[in-house]
Amino acid sequence: MKASVIHHLAALREACRRLLAAPLNCVLSLLVIGIALTLPSAGWLALENLRQATGNASGVQQISLYLALDAGQREIAEIETRLREAGAGRWRFVSRAEALKHLQASEGMAEIIASLPSNPLPDAFVVTPGDSRPAVLESLAASFAGWPKVAHVQLDSAWVQRFDALLRLGKRLVGLLAVLFAGALVTITFTTIRLQILAQAAEIEVAKLVGATDAWIQRPLLHFGVLQGALGGLVAALLVTLGFHLLSPPVGELARLYGADFVLRSLSGLDVAVLAGVGGVLGWVGARLSARLHLRHLE
């Protein structure tokens, strides 16, 4: 076996030994790291779900094209062709007769409609664009408005934009939280490693006197930082998943009341791996900074 492999295995064993040597400390640090990572990851998961929910909720990203009352079959066919050419997504044609029938079904409307001399409703297309970004919706709506016999284009754009802005704000917040708590994780690791170095000052001194390089002394500390960070990431994944299972029934209920049917998404295996990886990298950074700084003080 190569010496470097032996060194890493030994350092890993040493790091595990140190983790297990103080189980209470270990559990507490893991909890603190786990909680620090839980907040941004829970926020991220909530945003993911919101985005998915709005993607599925009907009527949100639709554009309605109301045709002029004098539009005939030819014009309707013409608009359909244009929609196809524009790649506008899916659409549904609602004839004025159909719209009237729909309205008549509403309570109280039947008499009013019966008193009208003719059907006041226009033919309409309800378009659901494939691309639902607000800017795309806006430009689609603008081009629809220029088509012949299109009397009115309605895009619930204010709502979409407001929601989009809110989502962006949420993303910014989650990003901020992530930076903040990443800093916290690095700090926690920094402190843990500092305490370890203080506790092992004698051992480190002896190791140096019998020929240990700085790298050799740092290695178990770095492994420890990575291990603690990664395990903290797993704790966070556990906490988020737990929270998800507590929250998803009432949220699902709420969604059903609003007529939306979507499945809440929990953390995937990849998400968990990423969380552990991020925890590990941050732990490495904290351990590295701490080792650099505090080992020099031991000289």
Partner: peptide
């Protein structure tokens, strides 16, 4: 090197004390 204050690790076994320099050079 044999130091005046010996510099032994008192929380490690005799064997572990002697193993330290070998662990440092990465001997299996």
């Amino acid at each position: 090197l044999i130091f005046q204050d010996r510099k032994l690790l008192f929380d490690r076994s005799v064997l572990d004390n002697v193993l330290l320099p070998l662990a440092i050079v990465g001997l299996p």
